[in-house]
Simulated assay, not measured.
Amino acid sequence: MYLAAMKIGLYFGSFNPVHTGHMIIANFMAYHTDLDKVWLVVSPHNPLKSSSTLLNEHHRLHLAEMAVQDEPRLRVSNIEFSLPRPSFTIDTLTYLTEKFPTQEFVVIMGSDSFQNIPRWKNYRQLLDNYAIYVYSRPGHEVTDTFGGNVTIVDAPLLDISSSNIRRWIQEGKSIRYMVPDNVWKYMSENNYYKS
């Protein structure tokens, strides 16, 4: 019996920390597009971001796993933990395509990130070989698809950022409901981002 390839959306991020905005996008992509599953790929170090404010990667992975634990169409991947650093999307995609040859991988990203894609390593190879599902962010309209197989998805957005969450924690303000409840409790108990 032939099994059809699963279509898996890869949602890359530092998830520092994972928050409700990430979860809404991941869940929307899993249930409102033709994707079968969405993997949150936790990046140990994004080459375009400073690593000084990053919580330990294993803590970030654990928080993301807690966030998706009851959702069958979402999972968390630590695939980049075992790849050379810093992590480049094209290298991760090449590795996953070799490791799971029967799956079809699609990249999920915001329109703000997509506008920067010409700065990415081997971006032409990425655009030529993988579909990209772009969720629109206000003020970052996609006016050029750079010749790629790009689908614009009108996902609901929350104006929450991980950097604001980290700042609010340091200021002693509540972040309840901005992250999943079990994540909020675990972060509070472990004093994450306090110092």
Results as ranks from 00 to 15, higher is better:
Asn129Thr: 09
Trp168Thr: 02
Val42His: 09
Val42Ala: 10
Asn190Tyr: 10
Leu54Glu: 10
Arg85Ala: 11
Tyr186Phe: 14
Ile169Asn: 04
His62Lys: 15
Val18Glu: 01
His58Ser: 12
Ala30Val: 06
Phe28Leu: 00
Lys121Gly: 00
Leu48Cys: 01
Asp159Phe: 04
Asn122Thr: 00
Pro17Cys: 05
Pro17His: 09
Asn149Gln: 14
Phe81Thr: 03
Ser163Lys: 11
Thr145Ala: 09
Glu171Phe: 02
Phe12Met: 03
Thr102Asn: 13
Ser14Asn: 12
Ile132Asp: 01
Ser51Glu: 11
Phe12His: 02
Trp168Cys: 08
Val150Glu: 04
Asn182Ala: 12
Phe15Arg: 05
Asp181Met: 08
Val150Ile: 15
Asn149Thr: 09
Val107Asn: 04
Val183Ser: 06
Asn16Ile: 05
Trp120His: 07
Arg73Val: 03
Phe81Cys: 04
Leu10Asn: 07
Ile175Phe: 07
Leu10Trp: 10
Met1Glu: 10
Ser111Thr: 01
Leu3Met: 14
Arg167Gly: 05
Leu61Glu: 11
Asp70Thr: 14
His59Met: 08
Ile108Tyr: 01
Asp34Lys: 11
Arg60Cys: 07
Arg119His: 12
Lys185Met: 09
Asn122Ser: 13
Gly148Leu: 04
Glu65Thr: 11
Ile8His: 09
Asp112Leu: 02
His22Arg: 05
Lys194Met: 10
Tyr193Asn: 02
His140Leu: 01
Val142His: 03
Trp39Cys: 05
His32Pro: 00
Gly21Leu: 06
Phe100Trp: 12
Glu98Ser: 15
Pro156Asn: 05
